Amino acid sequence: MNTGCLTIKELTEAVGSGITPRMVRHYHQLGILPEAMRSHGNYRLYTEKDVRRLQRIVALKQQGFQLNHIQQLLEAEPENDDNHNLTAHLQRQYRVVMQQIAQLRQTASALEGLLGRDKHCQIVQAEVLAQLKLIEVETQSGLNGLQKLWSGLDSEVHAHPEDFQESLQGLLPDISHLSEIEQDLISKLVLACGDVSLVGFIRLGNNALVTSKEALKSGCEIVVDISSVAAALDDTRLTHLNCRITTLIDNPHVTTAIEAEQAFWQQQKWRDKVLQITPNSIVVIGYAPSALLSICEAIQHQQISKPALVIGMPIGFSHAPAAKRLLIQSGVPFMTIEGTLGGGLLAATALNTLTEWVIEKPHCHCYLQNNQPES
């Protein structure tokens, strides 16, 4: 065996992260990892360059890149490329991905139109599904037939109000392993934005349900980033629980994510209010990602005590995903939506759901009945 070279088993051990020899061979087949040189006994032998290449593949995969996109990134040879060309390459790849998402969203919308039917529409739905089998959609007459089917479905919606819970039953993934309150929370967040794919990005952790329930029962302080988030909270129930609402950026004219982010950095007094967050409070951030970053950093440096819960759901394309990752790693009880998705309505919906459960079902401990970790 060549000195300094690694076997496939030694390669996977050097890279770690759960990589197996089978995965390495799969990457060879896809062309993402170049074929290794062979020993006299026909064993694959790997160099330090192969280790670095596989580490890059693993790192990109952990960040959410698909294998075909990883291959395109690696083929761009960023080590030898300047930032401008690499940025242009990434922008082209992003446009392709967004086009694919748009096409998938159209398909999902069509499926939602069929599957998201309450019982009042299910008879018509059954007729449509039966007729779909008979339509040759490639022909113009087939397309006209599809249009008639959709018209028939749409005509049904005028006869009754929509039953949202029944519609969701046919669309939500299986979440039966979760507690009743978690299922209710997920359903209400999906209804707040109308996007079922949100389910895959919702994250709860560090006993968020337990600590938030106890905090609300004790009349904790509710800290929000801007006044429009406060306006969306269930003030009647919070008053009943003796919970006081405090606004970090206490300016009623700040109503959007752009304004919230700029205001947070333009005036020191808003940033100073982060250090005034009281112990056992619940923090609700729906618009200002830098506010969430500052809160996480203040917790990390022990400048403030850990809140009972941080609902971190700001909108943003760079600071927001970073702030949410920091929140997940902070060790505090949290609720968040990974990535760029979020907003004040979603953040307020999360807290309103918790508040409703504390008042309507004060003795419910369903979230303690299964040993599944919070997702």
Rank of each mutant, 00 (worst) to 15 (best):
F65W: 10
L216C: 06
A322R: 09
S197C: 07
S176F: 02
V128C: 11
I328Y: 03
H84W: 12
A126V: 03
K217G: 05
S109Y: 11
A36F: 10
K49L: 13
A36T: 02
T211I: 01
L114K: 03
R25P: 00
L346Y: 04
A308L: 07
Y43E: 11
H253N: 12
D225T: 02
Y43S: 03
L241S: 03
T256D: 09
H177D: 11
K188T: 04
L111E: 12
Q147A: 14
R38T: 06
M23P: 00
L74M: 15
T12R: 01
K324C: 10
V196Y: 12
L111T: 01
Q165P: 00
W270L: 07
I57V: 15
G312P: 01
D82Q: 12
G342N: 09
V283S: 08
I32T: 14
Q372P: 00
G331V: 05
A322D: 05
L171H: 06
F264V: 02
L168I: 03
N2S: 08
S141L: 15
I202Y: 10
V58E: 12
V310P: 00
S187H: 08
R203H: 10
K133W: 10
L204A: 09
L209T: 02
D174C: 05
H301C: 04
T47V: 05
S227G: 00
N206E: 15
H160R: 08
V229C: 14
S187Y: 04
I135T: 02
E136H: 11
Q302F: 10
P321R: 04
P279K: 13
R44Y: 12
S187R: 14
Q55M: 14
K148G: 01
S155Q: 13
T47I: 02
K188H: 14
N352T: 04
A230Y: 10
F65Y: 15
N68F: 12
G4K: 07
R52T: 09
I299K: 06
L54Q: 06
G170N: 04
L216R: 02
E112L: 03
L153W: 05
S151V: 06
I282P: 00
R52N: 09
H158R: 04
L238K: 01
K273V: 03
A76F: 14
A348I: 10
V51S: 02
H240N: 07
L238I: 10
K133Q: 12
T278N: 03
P289T: 11
H177F: 15
D235G: 05
L73V: 15
C364L: 12
A260Y: 05
M1G: 09
A298I: 10
T47A: 13
E338C: 14
Q62L: 12
L86V: 15
R203G: 03
I19Y: 05
G286P: 00
Y287R: 11
Q267W: 08
I186G: 02
V274A: 08
S179Y: 12
V196T: 09
L45V: 02
Q106M: 13
Q300S: 12
K188F: 05
